[in-house]
Design a protein around this nucleic acid. Structure first.
Length: 540
DNA sequence: CACTGATGCGCG
DNA sequence: AAAGCGCGCATCAGTG
């Protein structure tokens, strides 16, 4: 039922099967050892037995297997599961709960360059068998075992998906990207030079500010020049600059836009990150405390809308782009079991809030909901809070309770049992300070944690269900539809055009399945907007 | 020179 | 100086 693998100092791999005895206790069987080279074939053979692979860190094992054409259906990622179980309020009293930091608390392994002449596979983290048994002990003794099991499975499957998406890569048109850059910036200049359109904007700025030597990339220099020109700015941020009328402002904002595009996703980025028509970000599951993913290198989760046109399906393939509409407010609705908000969410949730009479416009509904989930105290969000509280008392009480717990220094948890860090532990020092100085900041964090974290769980279940459906329907061959991108509440599937309509239906079905997995038959819908497109920029 | 923190901005 | 959460990255500014 489980096969635990570990890489030994002599570079062989030890496989230990684990099964339950008559009393239901998990017992390790006799280990076998294979040469590192033969490992992929061993996994290929045993996949038919539907075992669950147990390993220290998916990023250390799976890329190599994928390179050798082996797809794994299920796994346990000990590092990711450790982080959940150690902090979870659902494991209080177990040995793993609040254990001191150890080797399983480290960061995800960095990707290895497999094109290198010598590829050295790192040794496993120490004693994975003991770690696994410690984890099982905590899960099986938990009063919330079912939820925890689902969370650990979803988290581990997410790690598989992260490696698979990196392996396949996002289909990227270098030609199209270059065209977009030329359109926005002018032809590619020599390295270190500014493109022509940027130089044009810069000349206008310098003339308008009467500062012929101005370096626009230096905030201090820029701020002084603006002040000399009579603009009492306190910073050089766009939102502040926008408030002033001055001939320098428009070209300056235009310059800043271009500078950002060039620095973040210009030709240098293209050279570094797109190889063989594919962009392969290093996804990092649970990079955020809430369980949200991050990426490392390439900024994949911040792909500006301006260059999404470069994401282009292969010939005769298309992209099925889907995003979960108003995910976080719907998650809050389900968590709080708020019947009024569930009614409002029958169609477009924000229109539903308007129809309930709580606010006047869709824009107000959106700002008010964001304010409720983030803890707005002033501005439009804060102003609308009382009206929202009157219309949806249960939903608002739910986030208020999470906020008060945080303000007291307490721990909150997601639906499935991921718990917030305690103030002062495992958090950046400046956050720890702000808790002492101002508990309200921590309250805003815990308020948002329960919603954002449960939304992340929903998204993991969505992707996991979709992956399973795609594998069952199309298999794992090179011409099968496959996930290529994930962005918090949005997925992109790259598929042969002929399957697009069917894939779109599977994506929607998977969203419904995720809702049922988390919330049973609660009357909350999780609609997804699906678009079948050639290029990512055509979606939405 | 290398490193660190602040600034600014992209995404959800 | 963004009201209000979560991130990553490039660049500048200041320090050792």
């Amino acid at each position: 039922m489980f096969t635990l693998v570990e890489r030994l100092p002599d570079e062989t791999v030890r496989l230990t099967p684990l099964a339950r005895d008559d009393g239901g206790i998990l017992v390790p069987g006799d280990p076998t050892t294979v040469a590192s080279r033969a490992f992929a074939d061993t996994v290929r053979q045993r996949e038919s037995e539907a075992t669950r692979w147990v390993w220290d860190d998916t990023a250390r094992w799976y890329p190599q297997l994928l390179d050798e054409g082996v797809l794994v259906e299920r796994c346990v990622d000990l590092r990711l599961c450790h982080a959940i179980l150690r902090a979870s309020s659902s494991t209080v009293g177990s040995r793993i709960h609040e254990a001191p930091r150890g080797p399983y608390d480290g960061p995800q392994a960095a990707p290895v360059d497999r094109t290198a002449l010598f590829v050295v596979e790192p040794e496993s983290l120490p004693d994975p068998l003991a770690e696994f048994l410690l984890q099982r002990e905590a899960v099986e003794a938990s009063p919330h075992r079912g939820a925890l099991e689902l969370l650990l499975t979803a988290e581990s499957t997410g790690a598989l998906i992260a490696a698979e998406m990196r392996h396949r890569g996002i289909p990227w048109s270098v030609t199209r990207h270059d065209e977009l850059l030329v359109e926005a910036l002018g032809p590619r200049p020599a390295t270190g030079e500014r493109p022509t359109l940027m130089n044009g904007a810069l000349s206008e700025v310098r003339a308008a500010l009467n500062a012929p030597e101005l370096n626009p990339d230096s905030p201090t220099e820029l701020m002084r020049a603006l002040q000399r020109a009579g603009l009492p700015v306190a910073s050089t941020r766009q939102w502040e600059l926008k408030r002033y009328e001055h001939p320098a402002i428009e070209p300056l904002l235009r310059y800043k836009k271009m500078a950002r595009l060039l620095a973040a996703n210009g030709w240098g980025w293209l050279d570094t990150w797109v190889v063989g028509g594919r962009f392969r970000p290093d996804y990092v599951p649970a990079a955020a405390a809430t369980g949200r993913w991050g990426t490392s290198g390439g900024g994949a989760l911040q792909l500006p809308k301006a260059i999404r046109g470069a994401v282009v399906a292969d010939p005769d393939w298309t992209l099925v782009v889907a995003d979960a509409s108003q995910l976080e407010p719907r998650i809050l609705t389900a968590l709080a079991r708020d019947p009024a908000m569930a009614r409002a969410g029958a169609g477009d949730l924000y229109e539903g809030i308007v129809a309930s009479g709580a606010v006047a416009t869709r824009a107000e509904a959106k700002v008010a909901m964001l304010g409720a989930m983030y803890g707005a105290t002033s501005g439009d969000g804060g102003r609308l809070m009382p009206r929202l509280t009157r219309a949806f008392p249960r939903a608002i009480a739910f986030v208020e309770e999470a906020a008060r717990t945080g303000e007291r220094g307490g721990v909150v948890s997601t639906l499935l049992g991921r718990s917030s860090p305690r103030p002062g532990t495992d958090v950046p020092p400046e956050m720890a300070v702000s808790v002492g100085a101002d508990g309200r900041a921590w309250g805003r964090f815990t308020r948002n944690f329960v919603v954002q974290g449960t939304a992340a769980e929903w998204a993991l279940c969505w992707m996991g269900a979709l992956r399973r459906a795609l594998l069952a329907r199309y298999g794992s061959g090179l011409s099968a539809p496959h996930l290529v991108f994930f962005l918090h509440d949005e997925v992109v599937v790259h598929t042969p055009a002929a399957h697009a309509a069917e894939v779109a239906a599977l994506v929607s079905d998977a969203a419904t399945e995720a809702g049922r997995l988390l919330f049973g038959d609660a009357p909350v819908r999780f609609p997804v907007t699906v678009a079948t497109v050639t290029s990512y920029s055509e979606a939405k």
